[in-house]
């Protein structure tokens, strides 16, 4: 799909303070990769949602962050992994307003709308959500999905 351009960074997700660290690090990385303010804000917000899901629903885990490049465009790839109970019904979880707790139920679906590529790999041993965002909007959004 794309080639990594630097080393992968791993961040632990085990507390509210770790969520702040995730937001800070993702913002710094997005700035360095040449993201505009709006793109930065979208990616950081998506990361905040997914990291909180990792913490709250997955019982904690980690985020892997790397910079990727494709056809000269820089992007950031984030993978959130936990070893929690998994998501039984992904369709339902993505639906706006569905929450098994007392959230707004907008996090997962909202994060998907905020990024260019979104993928959920879930089983009873845990969940990995992977997202990619590009510094500039790709001409053909489907190109990045291949």
């Amino acid at each position: 799909m794309s080639t990594p351009v630097d080393e992968t960074v791993r961040l632990r997700i085990g507390s509210d303070a770790d969520l702040s660290a995730v937001r800070l690090q993702v913002r710094a990385k997005a700035q360095a990769a040449g993201f505009g303010l709006v793109q930065q804000t979208k990616l950081v917000t998506a990361a905040s949602e997914l990291a909180r899901n990792t913490l709250v629903h997955g019982g904690g885990g980690e985020m892997e962050m790397s910079e990727v490049a494709q056809a000269g465009v820089h992007g950031i790839k984030l993978a959130f992994t936990d070893s929690g109970p998994g998501i039984a019904d992904v369709e339902q979880a993505l639906a706006d307003g569905y929450t098994s707790g007392n959230g707004l139920g907008m996090g997962l679906g909202g994060a998907r709308r905020l990024v260019h590529h979104f993928d959920i790999d879930t089983r009873s041993q845990g969940t990995t959500v992977t997202i990619v965002s590009w510094a500039t909007t790709p001409v053909d959004p489907r190109a990045v999905l291949r």
Binding site: L37, V38, T41, T45, E49, D96, L104, M106, G110, R113
Partner: peptide, 13 residues
């Protein structure tokens, strides 16, 4: 801020 406004809307809030 504008960037946050856009993000909130896309998030669906």
């Amino acid at each position: 801020r504008p960037a946050i406004a856009q993000t909130i809307v896309q998030l669906g809030i």
